[in-house]
Design a protein around this nucleic acid. Sequence first.
RNA 1: GUGGCCGUAGCUCAAUGGUAGAGUCCUGGAUUGUGAUUCCAGCUGUUGUGGGUUCGAGUCCCAUCGGCCACCCCA
Length: 420
Amino acid sequence: MSNTLQAIRGMNDILPDEAERWLAFEATVQQWLARYGYRNIRMPLVEQTALFRRAIGEVTDIVEKEMYSWKDELNAEELTLRPEGTASCVRAAIEHSLVYDGPKHLWYAGPMYRHERPQKGRYRQFHQYGVEALGFAGPDVDAELIVMCAALWKELGLTGIRLELNTIGSSEERARFREQLIKYLEGKVESLDADGKRRMYTNPLRVLDSKNPAVQDALRDAPSLMEHLGEDSLRHFDAVKSLLGAAGVEYTLNPRLVRGLDYYNLTVFEWISDALGAQGTVCGGGRYDGLFAQIGGKPTPAAGFAMGCERLIALVQESRRATNVAGPAAYIVWQGEGTGAYALTLAEELRAQGLAVVQHAGSGSFKSQMKKADASGAQCALIVGEDELKSGEVTYKPMRRAEEQRRVPRAGLAALLRQP
RNA sequence: GUGGCCGUAGCUCAAUGGUAGAGUCCUGGAUUGUGAUUCCAGCUGUUGUGGGUUCGAGUCCCAUCGGCCACCCCA
């Protein structure tokens, strides 16, 4: 394709058939958010690079190799296309003192950008819904966030999504554990793979998450984070677990779940499906009490999660038999001297009464117009010819049920079209 | 970023190294203004792109772009 332009790798066009599924999905999600009292916030797609470096962490995969960053020569600013939404959301909350008069429930949606090798369910531009509870310290919020996810899966008709849960304690507890872990890893250097060696000092907790069997073998006697947690952290986690139990939400504890962004503490979770291949995480989040202070705000507890639209819509599509999109109420077929204006005003009249009406556009024989009417999925064809024009009528021809066509006066058409 | 498989008509796919095809879609027709079935006819290609080997390349080789799968990572 030397001569033709195509979309950037990993950035997809969403064509009408699929876009309609997106609209249905988003309508469901937004109603669900409203029921939980979350309010919308919209942030720019571009932020200062420093925001993500500080929020997500210097040695995370996202910051190390996945960000679309560049220098805007016009203002000598280092900018980045957002790889996730939480950092922007918290930045906005600090900038506008959103939690000054109390905690806030917020949600946002939109594209995120990560320069990874594309794969099904993993794109360079992908879309998330993010849900953030800012200013709430208690475990009840963690539990509510998780419970509301479960409710959404149910509403979307999704089954087979499992919840993995863990606690990673406070940053102090993690720091102490980190030292112990590094000491342990130093004794096992020969058994680590390249990735493990690289991460040993920069991000040793992620070494625990390795899928390499040899590495896992070497980790058999590694110290566990859970044993390094203090009473407060354990109590918080117990409260989350017991609330989930009360709500009937099942989970599996995954002590190796540490998540890829540095800002998390205490509760972390992922919702995972096995129906999507290797990109099975459909939603992930947790508590991030340190983030506000980390990017220059007043210390403020917070928790949230993000879910991936592409992956969820793929699941919905798989689990639900294809719902046929409703066509317009009518397709106007017109032919003959002066019928164009008659058809146009008829269409506008019906639309003004809330009906979806497609008027045939362009040339085409009568037969081909009828074919288009059928292909549009319209409930009926409205035929306007010179005869109808003269008498001020319209020929009404139902297309989805066995019923004879008939001439009807223009006046009562809207009511007729509304009948099931 | 690493490794593997793949790329032919709008779509789904054929074609021993020897003339690029089918189905579908689309367009027109089967008595004047009637769709979805049927019948007839027609349109559709720089075989992703660029090189190379060969008398001859969709087919073999190299590069490149794109897709899929796994790793990695996460939504």
